[in-house]
Structure formats: C-alpha cells, structure tokens
C-alpha cells in the first residue's frame, strides 16, 4: 500500500506554492493530502500526533520562509512546536523523520514539488509506522 502523508499548508505561502506547482504543471507523487490553514502558527502538536495515530506515514508542516510570514512571526511558532513535537516523537519511539518542517514561498512551485517528492521517497524508505500505515 502507498504511504499517506498529511501536509499542513498556510494560505499565503505554501498552499499558494502548491497552487503554483499545479499552474506550472509540475509533478509530484499523489501521496500528499493538503490541509490548508491560515498560518503554520495555527498547527498544534496534537494535530501532528492525531494524524500519525490514525496511520499517517508522515506529516509535513509548511509555511512562509522565516521573516516573510504573512502574520509576521506565526512561522516562528510553527518552528518551536514542530521542534518540540519532534522530541516528543523520539520519546514515544516514533521515527522523527516522519515529521518534517519546510518553508515554501508562494513563488516556489518547483520547490513545493521537489520537497514533496523528496519527503515521499524518504517515508517509503522507513520501516512501517508502528501505528499502522505502510
């Protein structure tokens, strides 16, 4: 079975970058399910854990580049929370490579496609998730 990955994208940068990847007809594997929020700063550790608990093979949080956040510094919150969640995953015995944080601007369609391709490939290399999934 193909791995399933939940991607949290902010409205202003990374989701717009995903749209640009589409407009530019770039290709990436179909394993990603995008959840669009206003800002990466909205993403709480519990969402990441919930996705993994339900069998997601990977979670990727994406936002505007540091310094370029539409909400000035929401992505700094995302950075803190993802770092904290990564530690938590280690403690729980979940491979922290299943969680990734990436900054993708609205003009980086190519980067969106390459980041997603890379993440899917990396997830495919991992052992099956202890919580289900692959």
């Amino acid at each position: 079975m193909e791995p399933k990955i939940v991607a949290f994208c902010c409205k202003w940068c990374s989701s717009a970058g995903a749209d640009l990847a589409g407009t530019s007809r770039m290709k990436y594997p179909p394993n990603i399910r995008i959840i669009r929020v206003m800002c990466s700063g909205r993403i709480e550790p519990s969402y990441i854990l919930r996705a993994l608990e339900l069998g997601a093979d990977g979670v990727i949080v994406t936002g505007c580049h540091l310094g370029d956040c539409h909400y000035i510094a929401g992505n700094e919150q995302a950075l803190k929370r993802v770092e904290m969640t990564t530690e938590l995953l280690e403690t729980m015995g979940i491979d922290p490579r299943r969680l990734r944080l990436e900054w993708i601007s609205a003009s980086e369609g190519a980067r969106f496609a390459s980041v997603m391709t890379d993440f899917v490939e990396e997830i495919k290399k991992l052992e099956p998730s202890p919580l289900g999934g692959v």
């Binding site: 193909e2 995903a18 749209d19 640009l20 990847a21 589409g22 407009t23 007809r25 770039m26 290709k27 990436y28 179909p30 399910r33 995008i34 669009r36 496609a113």
Partner: peptide
Amino acid sequence: ANIREQDSWVHTDKDEATEK
C-alpha cells in the same frame, strides 16, 4: 476541495488522481 492545482494538474496517473 482543490482537485485542480493540487490534484489533476500535478498527477498523471488517472486512478491515483481520482482516488486522491
């Protein structure tokens, strides 16, 4: 549901895109 920019335009396999 964004099934154009984030689906049909970025995937080529019809079954996989439909499933997404």
